[in-house]
């Protein structure tokens, strides 16, 4: 959350539901994940396997592709930023939907936390914070791998890390807001229904020019499209004012998501 937005945002949140101790929730998650370190570590490998397989295999069918500025880049360099964006989305969505739903309705974990001074906003921020911390570690590792494979063309790529965090924050906030409306596991079909097409069609694997114009417009509305464009601009060093537009998209998502999530959690947890 950017500093100037914070006070305004604050007034939109329910009073008395924030004790300023979201950090303790993150301590809890860190402690818990020590026992499931393998699952933790495995999260990094998913995009890496995609990069290895698709970059070399599919790349052999395609050859080079035009980059954001029209200059040809290798297929691996084309999909790597896409995979970085997609993995930021996938991780954030998984953490904020399945995990939160389970803790909310099955483990009743949040009920126990609300018996302490923690409020719903601590819970929401703590969970999102942990998702970001984890996502940040994965993104750092993935960017290092990209650098190792020579897929990074510009120092602007360093900004891909904070960009990945913002993208993850936006998806986590929206995901948590959506979870607060879900009644049963059956509703999670809808999550798959939203995430999988985005992963496949948001120019992760091939450029927008493949589509007819009307489909291009649809894709341009999807959040992951903006994330992919943002990352691709940064890692290839094609940086312009257009990137700010992509950024704005995610700032709006964050604000909307956090406000809805906090209000809904308040109502769900404090009945």
């Amino acid at each position: 959350m950017s500093a100037p937005a914070a006070p305004a945002l604050w007034r939109l949140l329910p009073a008395g539901s924030y004790a300023g101790r979201a950090r303790m929730m993150m301590v809890r998650s860190a402690t818990a994940s020590r026992r499931t370190w393998l699952a933790f570590v495995s999260g990094f490998f998913e995009p890496l396997f995609y990069l290895l397989a698709m970059g070399t295999g599919l790349g052999s069918l395609v050859g080079d592709l035009p980059g954001p500025d029209g200059q040809p880049i290798s297929y691996a360099a084309f999909i790597a930023p896409g995979l970085l964006a997609a993995s930021a989305m996938n991780g954030a969505v998984f953490d904020s939907t399945y995990n939160v739903f389970f803790k909310l309705h099955y483990a009743r974990l949040y009920d126990s936390m609300l018996a302490t001074p923690l409020g719903p906003v601590d819970v929401a921020l703590g969970e999102i914070g942990w998702a970001l911390l984890r996502g940040g570690l994965y993104a750092t590792a993935f960017l290092s791998v990209m650098a190792g494979f020579g897929l990074i063309e510009s120092p602007w790529a360093l900004l891909a890390l904070p960009a990945a965090l913002l993208v993850a924050f936006a998806f986590a906030a929206i995901g948590m807001a959506a979870t607060s409306f879900m009644r049963s596991w059956q509703d999670f079909d809808l999550v798959t229904l939203a995430v999988l097409p985005m992963f496949l069609f948001s120019t992760t694997f091939y450029p927008l020019s493949v589509y007819p114009r009307w489909l291009q417009i649809v894709v341009e509305c999807l959040p992951l499209y903006h994330a992919v464009e943002l990352m691709r601009g940064l890692t290839t060093g094609v940086v312009g004012a257009g990137l700010l537009g992509h950024l704005a998209y995610f700032v709006v998502m964050v604000v909307v998501g956090v406000v809805i999530a906090a209000r809904r959690l308040d109502r769900l947890l404090l009945r």
């Binding site: 499931t36 370190w37 699952a39 495995s42 999260g43 995609y50 397989a53 295999g57 599919l58």
Partner: peptide
């Protein structure tokens, strides 16, 4: 805890990616 995420990430996903579905395996 660990078992299924590790299974999916280390076995199932590599299996789907490295089995010649999208491209011939000799490209690997």
């Amino acid at each position: 805890g660990n078992a299924f995420s590790a299974l999916f990430r280390f076995v199932v996903i590599p299996m789907t990616l490295f089995s010649g579905t999208f491209f011939p395996v000799d490209r690997l």
